[in-house]
Design a protein around this nucleic acid. Structure first.
Lengths: 131, 131
DNA sequence: ATAAGGGTTACAGTGACTGGAAGGTCAAGC
DNA sequence: GCTTGACCTTCCAGTCACTGTAACCCTTAT
């Protein structure tokens, strides 16, 4: 099947699919005319990648997950470990953003937002510990 | 003052400071020997940038904030608007990560994590709606 | 005189794509 | 047979905000 159809089925862009071939993630056969020819197994890999990326796994993590996906003798322990790491990472990111949010919220609340130049946001950024 | 000291005072790397000059954010004078020479005002800009970047503002947003910072006739309304936009963006990101976290948490919880290959995480990624 | 520790430029690499140019292929309609 | 348009191909450049590396110059202390 052509790359265009593969794109529709996997909900990835044609560009992205070609990129995944560049980095040796999914390597379809070629037809005589040079067109890529995706098998059902290839499509499943693409869908797998689309979902894994959507869940925030990096390309390298996807590569690992994909090898587990294709390994009938995998242990679910290995998969779970990767997912747990990612979960912890997401937690850290949320905490970080939450802290940013709190800081920014306080600054926004304290800023009059009028025509005058006095601004606690600017003051804070400039290093003056404004209240 | 030399770039090394500027780096210490602003808590930015030397590389980053040079990069900020490349993209015309902070343009120090030059000494006769070609060394960059940072004024107190330059240092304040660098500190400003370090804090603004730390709060999640993009370089372009920093550029805008910096122009407001340097503008004595700014209105705090303009600053507040940028900060509010950023706040909304952070909120969106937190929501997104929260959704990811929930999905991943469910998957991790349902995975036995043993020697067997059966794995709801893999099943989910492969497109099978596993329970 | 030399060595350490600054400074300078220029170019390449990161991650995960995305955009664009220049061209080849295919199927449908005239 | 010809054209049109939609698809496909490769290759190169750009994104963001730096970071790494190489090759070289300058300053200061010994």
């Amino acid at each position: 099947m052509n790359i265009g159809e593969a794109a529709k089925l996997s909900d990835l862009s044609v560009k992205t699919i070609r990129y995944y071939e560049d980095i040796a993630l999914v390597k379809p056969d070629r037809l005589e005319n040079g067109y890529r020819d995706y098998s059902d197994a290839d499509i499943h890999c693409l869908i797998f990648l689309q979902r894994a990326r959507g869940l925030g796994f990096s390309i390298d993590e996807c590569r690992l997950l994909l090898s587990l996906y294709e390994d009938d003798h995998r242990s679910s322990r290995d998969v779970k470990a990767i997912a747990k790491d990612k979960l912890a990472e997401i937690d850290r990111k949320i905490d970080e953003l939450q802290a940013l949010k709190n800081t920014l919220k306080t600054l926004v609340k304290n800023c009059h937002g009028d025509d005058k130049p006095d601004c606690p946001i600017i003051d804070n950024l400039s290093g003056q510990r404004a209240q």
